[in-house]
Design a protein around this nucleic acid. Sequence first.
RNA 1: GCGGGAGUGGCGGAACGGUAGACGCGGCGGACUCAAAAUCCGUUGCCCGCAAGGGCGUAGGGGUUCGAAACCCCUCUCCCGCACCA
Length: 880
Amino acid sequence: MSDTLAIAAEKAGSEPARFDFAAAEPRWQQAWERRGCFRVADVPDDGLPKYYVLEMFPYPSGKIHMGHVRNYTLGDVVARYKRARGFSVLHPMGWDAFGLPAENAARERGVHPARWTYDNIAAMRAELQRMGLSLDWSREFATCDPEYYGHQQKLFLDLWRAGLVERRESWVNWDPVDGTVLANEQVIEGRGWRSGAPVEKKLLSQWFLRITAYAPELLSALDGLERWPERVRVMQAKWIGRSEGAKLRFPLLRPVGSIEGVEVYTTRPDTLMGMSFLALAPEHPLAAAVAESDPQAAAFIAECRRLGTSEAVIETAEKRGFDTGLCVDNPFLPGQTSPVWIANFVLMEYGTGAIFGCPAHDQRDLDFARKYALPVPPVVLPPGADPATYAIGDTAYVGPGVMFNSGFLDGLDTEAAKRAAIAELERQGAGKGEVNWRLRDWGVSRQRYWGCPIPMIHCDACGIVAVPDSALPVRLPEDVTFDRPGNPLDNHPSWRHVACPECGRPARRETDTFDVFVDSAWYFARFCSPRAAVPMARDAVDHWLPVDQYIGGIEHAILHLLYSRFFTRAMRDTGHLAEREPFAGLFTQGMVTHESYRTADGKWLYPEEVERQPDGSAIHRDTGEPVSVGRVEAMSKSKRNTVDPGAIITRFGADTARWFILSDNPPDRDMEWTEAGVSGVFRFTQRLFRLAEAVEAAPTPAPGTGFGDAARTLRRATHHAIKAVTDALESFAFNVAVARVHEFANAMADAEKVAEAPDHPGLAWARTEAVETLARLISPMMPHLAEEIHARLHPEAESLVAELSWPEADPAWLAVESVTIAVQVMGRLRGTITMPPGAEAGDVVAAAAVEPNVARALQGKRVIKRVHVPDRIVNFVVAE
RNA sequence: GCGGGAGUGGCGGAACGGUAGACGCGGCGGACUCAAAAUCCGUUGCCCGCAAGGGCGUAGGGGUUCGAAACCCCUCUCCCGCACCA
């Protein structure tokens, strides 16, 4: 089937009755470009309302994939629709161009990262342009352009001056073979993903952006993001992770070196009198101090470190600990001490890296206490429990209750006890109430070449000195080698040597580059004034931001979106813009999936290597060997279940690809790409073309009142389609918009049938109206075919559908001439009647009652209630 | 475990509390053709019935309502996210 279709598609050029997409699509793309249809000014003076549509910009891998097609089609529908609705639409495109793949290509194939990246950009730009997207290409930039990253360096220095940048030590995943820091997702089973070497935890000085300074605002402002998916807001809220509790200090009975006590954060200060032990994270300073004189402690800590890096949390659900022999006092229980343990389940990164263990009311603490036979004193009595007999088994009681065994807290409920405990801690000076956040500051240092250089200088005399604004951008050197492990910037013979801007003596450049998430944390702002001499022109960003509709994958729900929200606030506080939130509306699309195929010996096959048999089985196209059809799953190179958008556009055209990707299902769900689906859509494009072909430009003016039945029916269908498609597009229900166009096409086909017969007043005019309307209604989805249809009706005119306004439904033609009213008896459908719209209730009920089938159902029954919903339903309620 | 989302024909999916299954795919039957493709027409939730018609039906069980796929309660299944966060 696909072969024959391909032939049909290829023949399309030679047969005039077909839509020759291969010729038409480039022609219209050039026409849009020539007329600058999609260009807008940085600060427009057209007085139109603004609308900023943005899709997440791509990493330039070199080829677009179906996920891109879906993403950019969705955005383009919105952009074209809003433009037609009279908005001045900003719809830009650029490249998220820094990152590791370019460096890997350099190491593996000897291509310079810049060369590799710009070649890929050229290839991908050409593919995107074939899709016919309504982009303002004059705004294009790549984040690896020195112009772009120079402005990023300026932003960073502004943050530095505003106190939003810190340099401090932190634990990182270190690959000793590659000599580089690894992100968590690059550590696989405790080993570097490239080198395979066991990853070490290493303490390194890193640059941090103080995102935590905005934690309260980032959390509270989530409530205002009404056009964001609920789940993204929830994920961000959990990531930010606000908790209320108390921080308190436990004095050690005997100091260890200079350490005299341990700070602990808890959300359950009410349970302090149920304390059984104190536990330290293995990385805790006190643990390290103990280890200095205790080889066994050192061995335990080393063991934890080895397991800890490997994300082995899952397999080591088992809790393990080491008793240091130390003891602490409890501020609420004078004279009673608790042992200090080192425990593998305590996280250094959260709170203070130490906890107090209350096993009766915390499951983790209970597991630990049972394992090491520590006491489990209960202090919270669940509702209805008997204090005389209440005991904890294998399940901790974490719910609310009434305090007992707790001295001054006895009798209080959990919430009151928390408040009373905090008040008492504060009175004693032993601790205080505190809000804690899970969010960590953002470590942005990467020991890599292909990233934006961090514009800082290390001077032995002056310390850390910022590169002066006048010396920006700090450019990456081009003459780098990748033949040695580690960061090429460190290995470069001269680049790092620089005179200190303050004292003039020899100093060293920072050789770390920024995390690529910094690049994408402000690009939406740069798009507003992409050629400005400053990071962003204030009047341009104040005009265009926030992005009205942002569209992309759910995988960026947390990091990219949170960093962008942070950066926007940081840019506000450094005077670059006024806006608070970057993205007023967010839409997260589903994945594109496909069947997967493999041969008997387990080799994955590409879809084009597989042929389906009439009986549903599959064989290898060339060898004829049987192929097993696997699950439908996300397209991935490893499963080879990918379809190349370029090949699809060549065979079927961009409009077909766009329409299919919109039509299959709602855009937030995963969609399945199928051959049958594409073929069906291809046929539909040809059908629309034929329907339009059959219609001549009708004489203007309209024939006034001279519309016969057929013309009236078609005009009603036309205006109904306008309303229905508009409603669907407004609600992001693109699959429904597609269905409404199908209905409209069916109505047009019906009109064509009767048009053969003579004497249909006004039908020719109505058919022209229908075709003109069709062109505009499909234009957001199938822009090329829309232009083609429009041009055939107006061969002399210069106008483009891309420049036309959206059609308006005429209410007069939305009105129906009769309505079908369902008639129920006791809520069960017994018949339907046809009435004029707005008929009197009495008339409708009377007509309903005599409908034969209804009358039979009412036979011998006493009607006790008649429900009438105008133009919709009549329901007779009868007594039994 | 916690959180979020989803369960509707063979399939993707429609459906302001008001005729469930729009629209498409697929299937079946037919027209056109030497034949095929393309195109066009009809049909297509399940069961009973020659028909008229009737029964069942939106994961399952209850409830609210004249009327529930939709609202409420309980249960089940699947997908996604987070997961020793003190």
